[in-house]
Design a protein around this nucleic acid. Sequence first.
DNA 1: CCGTAACCCTGCGTGC
DNA 2: TGCACGCAGGGTTACG
Length: 278
Amino acid sequence: MPELPEVETIRRSLEKTIKNLTICQADIYLPQIVKIPSTERFLEQVANKKVTGIERKGKYLLIRLAQNMTLVVHFRMTGKFICCDPKDPVVKHTHLVFQLDNNSELRYNDVRQFGRFYLLESNDLNQIPGLKKMGIEPFDACFTRDYLKKHIKFRRTKIKPLLMDQCFIAGIGNIYADEILQAAKIHPERLACSLNAREIANLYLSIKKVLNKGIEYNGASIRDYVDSNGEKGRFQEQLAVYNREGEPCINCSTAIIRKRIGGRSSHFCPVCQKAADK
DNA sequence: CCGTAACCCTGCGTGC
DNA sequence: TGCACGCAGGGTTACG
């Protein structure tokens, strides 16, 4: 499930493999993957476009093309790119194929079919609601401890769902939210407005530290995430709480709890991450 | 503003 | 061996 560190890893690998290549043509095998424009216009407009750069905003990947066009990709749960030889067998769940001018192919594979593609003029990206409403980038210079403090103070929601709210901060999903709260020693059900200055400072540092570590380890390969060269990440070996229900806490050996919070399964240490008194 | 739930979809684990 | 079922998960949308 590509979150910020996984998408950043994909971005970096694509920068090496497809930047400055030209897309000769594309084939769509699952039309619903392409949200904007129609499949016909998509195929027509993407053909013969040079890839000029690859950027990331939150969990979105932005493939910049010639003539001021941008191909936007959201991987959701199981989407991935595969760079390969055209002769390589087309594996199951391949929904989109781009033929490149160096006789290679970039294939989009997505078991759950939740991922989405958009092809737009670069100044029209606000047509994608998730980009228009996107919150601050955790590595933006404007994201400071004071910024976090200011925006957290009046929110009467639980801290974990807030961390995962893409309108609040961009790029944090279920895995990294659990890991960030563990690092900050904050219970996921604490109300955001109840955090004191010390806790907000810890949370701020933990957001940066955990996301940076995720990038450093090339993302987490839970289930079957791989980058566009088929490389697995190693962050899953560093997880302190996620997917560790019943296993001992790395600090105090207490069994890690799993609980549904805000409709998502959440993992935390009941001792290190104390709940607020009711 | 906040919480809950449905929806999209397939693979996998479980129970029979 | 195999079927039926429920669950997982991100983001969007609907509703109270």
